[in-house]
Design a protein around this nucleic acid. Structure first.
Lengths: 327, 327
DNA sequence: CTGAAAGCGCTTACAG
DNA sequence: CTGAAAGCGCTTACAG
């Protein structure tokens, strides 16, 4: 392995000069710079990041803490994070927390020992002390806000209004809203949006809390469809729930979209594969991840960030679970 | 930050002794051990992994190189890798390669500078020099074999035989096989399995190469269904292709499973959400990841591994795209 | 503008 | 069984 010493010797300068040149810190004469450039070139030298970390107490690792990469929402997020991290020379460490505060805490501590540069986290425990006292740059994703921690999330409320209106414009007269878990920020924002839009109309509605889980959603919707045959529109807070609702419509013998229209939320790839294709309020998950990562890197590099809250716009994707608009 | 020096001072021994004790290397008297244990306890001391890496040229990072975490096959794999890595005290770095040899090479080089402990890789370029000369433990997943690199994969051929037989036993008389990309090892094994099973029967068949891509698969199947209305069974080499086939059946007006039966391969979660639910040959992806990680860690820790090739059994999951067995 | 030297927090021969 | 010392490969005051 070639070290900074080798370069110094070859260039006829001290290691301090090589270091200063490579890090662009402190003065280096043009001649010295020249010599070092040549030596680096010839030896194909690159700084050893570990030795460097030991001194600077900084690495170029970014920790990505999320509940479970297996949840269809997260792979794309992870992809975005990794893509922009790579662009800026950072490496990402994957951490599945299962929403368990202990696991989150452990990750934070283990990685801090490795001088991690910062964290991107999706968690409901953002008010936990291990975040507040982490003493390392953090950006929160999607779920929560803590005044000190920059957050990026979708325009959930706006999206829910769009989704609700989509059903309204298509003639629904009795809408079922599948509300997500009550402690989830985005789920609550979506609920708010739904309420705002539905109350502006004179349409009847019903709200049911429903986990973001396929089989559970299916069961819940099957029951409700039986109890209330008048329901002709379902707005689900997630695509997985919407898929459950679609399946339930099948078992209940309700034709979609003729008798029952369905709109989901998320925009995961699976939606297009369903029959009929799922109309949904699509989040730009990739963008969320990309924005979060850029914000984090700015914080890491002590650049000013303009704001503490970033909203990524959401988009209505019309597919087969809705009919054409009623004029 | 408390260092090994603090511990040494508190315990009244030298840092060398503390280090030996903590690493379980070399002799340490019972009294010294006692004193160190107490000091470590009181100071809540933990070794600094970076300083350690600089000396030992080893870290506890594992690199997970895969084409794209966004592909439904990989999240579960990543989850398994992370789970068992965590158990053994390793941390996983996520690397999306897009099957690009340059990206793979870059990851390997960047991470080697961080003294990465080993790699788990899914790639078609496993014969590339950057793997052969990586000089770091590697375990290959799913895709390829290189005599020197331990590989874990599904029992693809066996699975394809099971899938084909499922269709045969259910009375299919003209089967379409959606073959995956020709350079993919697993796709070829599945092809072999299909051929073996189909040729044992007297049933007519047709083979078409088809990427693991939803919309493309749909298009291809739509065309073929039109050309050949006799097809009453489709065996797809992946669930995504099967989903495309199912969609195509819908547009072609073919009732599934009455007129057309479909079997997929993979066992991704989306399969259950389709209507009807997708019958498929399910891989135990989690197990593949877990086995691969355990094998890798054994190699990292210089323990003997019993074999160089691990096959994880596959399982037929019957859902709604197939009928009941014909007696 | 530059280099000698100390230091980051460990590990590991080596001498005792 | 133990400790002093060198070394891993860098960075960073400091003196010049």
């Amino acid at each position: 392995m070639t070290t900074i010493k080798d370069v110094a010797k070859k260039a006829g300068v001290s290691v301090a000069t090589v270091s200063r040149f490579l890090n662009n810190s402190g003065y280096v004469s043009t001649e010295a710079a020249q010599a070092v450039t040549v030596a680096v070139e010839e030896l194909k030298y690159e700084l050893n990041p570990i030795a460097r970390s030991l001194n600077t107490k900084k690495s170029n690792l970014i920790g990505l803490i999320l509940p479970d990469i297996t949840n269809p929402f997260f792979p794309e997020l992870a992809r975005a994070v990794e893509d922009v991290a790579l662009t800026y020379g950072y490496t990402v460490v994957l951490c599945n927390s299962d929403e368990d505060p202990e696991k989150e805490k452990n990750y934070i501590e283990t990685l801090k020992k490795k001088y991690i540069a910062g964290f991107i986290v999706t968690s409901n425990q953002l008010d936990a002390p291990h975040y507040a006292n982490a003493n390392v740059p953090i950006v929160a994703l999607d779920r929560t806000i803590n005044e000190k921690i920059p957050t990026v999330s979708s325009n959930n409320k706006e999206g829910a209004i769009m989704g609700t209106n989509a059903l309204l414009e298509r003639g629904c007269k009795h809408i079922l809203f599948l509300r997500g878990p009550e402690k989830l920020n985005p789920a609550n924002d979506r609920y708010e949006g739904f309420m705002e839009a539905i109350q502006r109309s004179n349409v009847r509605y019903q709200v049911v809390t429903c986990p973001f889980h396929f089989a559970d959603s299916q069961k819940i919707v099957e029951r409700i469809l039986q109890e209330n045959p008048l329901i002709d529109g379902i707005f689900a807070s997630s695509d997985v729930s919407a898929a459950g609702a679609l399946k339930a419509a099948g078992t209940a013998g309700k034709h979609v979209p003729d008798e029952l229209q369905i709109v989901g939320f998320d925009g995961v790839a699976m939606g297009a594969m369903l029959s009929p294709g799922l109309t949904t309020v699509a989040q730009d998950v990739y963008k969320m991840g990309a924005v979060a990562t850029r914000v984090l890197i700015k914080r890491i590099e002590n650049k000013k960030i303009e704001q503490n809250f970033y909203e990524v716009p959401v988009k209505l994707v019309i597919r087969g679970t809705t009919r054409s608009v009623v004029e």
